[in-house]
Design a protein around this nucleic acid. Structure first.
Lengths: 205, 205
DNA sequence: AAGAGGATATGACCGTTGGTCGAAAAAAAC
DNA sequence: GTTTTTTTCGACCAACGGTCATATCCTCTT
């Protein structure tokens, strides 16, 4: 909080360095040098090296998450439309930040917490929102399901894991197929006619 | 390869130490000492600290995966029973090895490759097996679904992510709920009567 | 204008780490 | 028994994350 400028400078530096190195290979001194400050200053703004990564993830996903959260209260929009908007928010937020080259070999496995963090962040933040939307859909009779929280979690897990595309790297086609299958499962699982949720499938960037 | 005994001793040591420490907190010297050998010898068997972890993951998931794979050909057993056995295999393999204390706070995120590896390994290895089982179920009319591969993937993603319990740490109760919801979704999504797949829910250890 | 006092910034410094290496010990080969 | 190869080892190294006493800056008060 004290000096937002330096704080951001540090985050920028880490983001820059992450583009072509794994986290383990980046030293705190390196971050400090890239940010144009002394190493000691890093620890004035962050308690640990890991905390910098946490903050970076936080910063990059704050905006899409906030807009997604705002949807929960828009009760005038159909639950399914709002669900589709959340789907879209997930897609945008991921493609913006994590553009890792998926080189083969065991080297890339170090950048994974970044992805883990992304998935974790999105799911935990979005789950209550989506659950609330589902709950509203249940109330209006548009959705039939017993446990809104669990359904929200299932949807978000599959969605984020597939969209992130790091845990189980797949072709674009496979991703589409899985999401299509998820939508089919949702339709039948929530008592909706086939094809009624098709708009959820809309293109992946 | 040269001396399988020492090799295994090292893996045992790491496994033991992982029970109550995160990977970063375990030093190579510590592993060596626990294994009862000199530090230098570690590097006679493994090229790096991370390679030890890789080997450990490999060793721990080989057996349950092999047995799960063997199920694919057991066409005399009902597809649902075989699915339940795969569910069980996932549970066993994870609970056996990954017993992380899920302390709150952002500190624990360093052990993540281990979990990422687990999830990735299980899903990619088990997906064709489960898909084949589902395909057989479709052929016999016990399951109604269009895309067996995608369904298998959805099931495995939710299952492993929840069972691993690292991406979205939850209480045992929440895990049960999510899996119950998945089963409900499966029942209705595959044209089966409610409750018919209940045995898939069987207790988590 | 002076200076007191907190906020900010820093690099030398510390304990420890992952990994290397030459040499010793053990085993194998002859 | 002697050479050769495999295996073991801990002292050693560079580099790391993190700490700290000190230094600089900024803002008030007088």
């Amino acid at each position: 909080m004290p000096n937002q400028l330096k704080y951001d400078r540090i985050l920028d530096a880490l983001q820059e360095l992450l583009k072509d190195q794994k986290l383990q290979a980046i030293s705190v001194s390196e971050i400090a040098h890239t940010a144009g400050i002394g190493k000691g200053s890093i620890y004035y703004y962050f308690p640990s090296k890991d905390a910098i990564l946490d903050a970076l993830v936080e910063r990059n996903y704050e905006k899409p998450l906030q807009t997604a959260k705002a949807l929960a209260d828009q009760t005038d929009i159909s639950p399914f439309t709002r669900m589709a908007m959340i789907f879209q928010a997930c897609r945008n937020s991921s493609s913006e930040f994590i553009k890792s080259e998926n080189q083969a070999g065991p080297g890339t496995q170090e950048k994974t917490f970044l992805h883990q963090k992304y998935v974790n962040h999105i799911i935990t933040e979005l789950k209550p929102v989506l659950a609330e939307i589902i709950r509203q859909g249940i109330r209006t009779g548009e959705i039939h399901f017993k446990d809104p929280e669990a359904l929200a979690e299932i949807v978000l897990i599959v969605l984020t894991v597939k969209i992130d595309n790091t845990l189980i790297p797949s072709s674009k086609e496979e991703i589409e197929n899985t999401i299509s299958a998820l939508v089919s499962l949702l339709e039948r699982g929530t008592g909706n006619p086939p094809g009624s949720l098709n708009f959820l499938k809309s293109r992946l960037s």
